[in-house]
């Protein structure tokens, strides 16, 4: 009869975290930045139809890195959460904070349960505020930890050089074009990035009087804004 080996909880959590980190580090980074025109979500994504960035609700956007099948399932659950809540209460009662908490619960429970493998994802939930000061950026990690970012956040494996580049080259009061240029320059610190591989969306401040603020920017629009040949 075989005896199961004893594994200390410290070791188990460390192993699980290492496993999840490794999975996330394989993917390319995604940036969320506040600017004068709204909140810009920028991802390196070679697929034109398998999105890393998505609309969750009127003023809430979603960005993810890691395993596609996992964050896609989480994205759909987020949309269900938001639509159900907005329908049962009111559209104004759907907040990024509530959504981030729910994601944190789900990821945290899965991480520490020890039965399933942990999620290999990192999520960003962005909410456009009625006023720019009320913008919210939350990052939810694979273990359920949540952090709130001020002006911008970078998720994914090789975030440090991108964060560094943004700290020097980006202004929170800049226009959409300026902000997008800064984001592209920051992404290029990690290697060549062609504009055709960018997935970009904006939570548009000028659409706040309408219902849905999420707008996807297509290839020509991105080229026009960034203003180079890519």
């Amino acid at each position: 009869m075989s005896m199961p080996f004893y594994v200390s909880p410290d070791q188990m959590m460390k192993d699980r975290a290492d496993f999840a980190r490794k999975g996330i580090a394989r993917g390319r980074s995604v940036i969320a930045l506040r600017c004068a025109d709204g909140i810009v979500l920028v991802a390196e994504n070679s697929s034109g139809s398998l999105h890393k960035i998505s609309e969750i609700y009127d003023r809430i956007g979603f960005a993810a890195v890691g395993r596609y099948n996992e964050f896609e399932a989480l994205r759909v659950q987020g949309i269900r959460y938001a639509d159900l809540r907005g329908y049962a209460y009111d559209r104004a009662d759907v907040s990024a904070r509530g959504l981030a908490n729910s994601y944190a619960q789900l990821l945290g429970t899965s991480f520490s349960s020890g039965t399933d493998k942990p999620f290999e994802v990192q999520l960003c939930v962005a909410e456009l505020g009625a006023e720019p000061e009320l913008d919210r950026l939350f990052v939810i990690n694979f273990d359920g930890s949540v952090t709130q970012a001020d002006d911008f956040t970078v998720i994914g494996g090789r975030a440090e050089p991108i964060v560094e580049a943004l700290q020097n080259g980006y202004d929170v009061n800049g226009s959409l074009a300026e902000t997008l240029r800064a984001a592209v320059a920051a992404l290029r610190t990690g290697g060549d990035v062609s504009l055709g591989e960018l997935e970009v969306a904006l939570l548009d401040r000028s659409r706040l009087d309408r219902r849905r603020t999420f707008v996807r920017l297509d290839g020509p629009r991105i080229t026009e804004l960034v203003g180079d040949e890519g």
Binding site: L84, R85, S102
Partner: peptide, 17 residues
Amino acid sequence: MIDHASPHDPGQFWTRA
């Protein structure tokens, strides 16, 4: 209100999709 059933379980996921 997020569904806490595990998305790792494909059966659950598809029936709910």
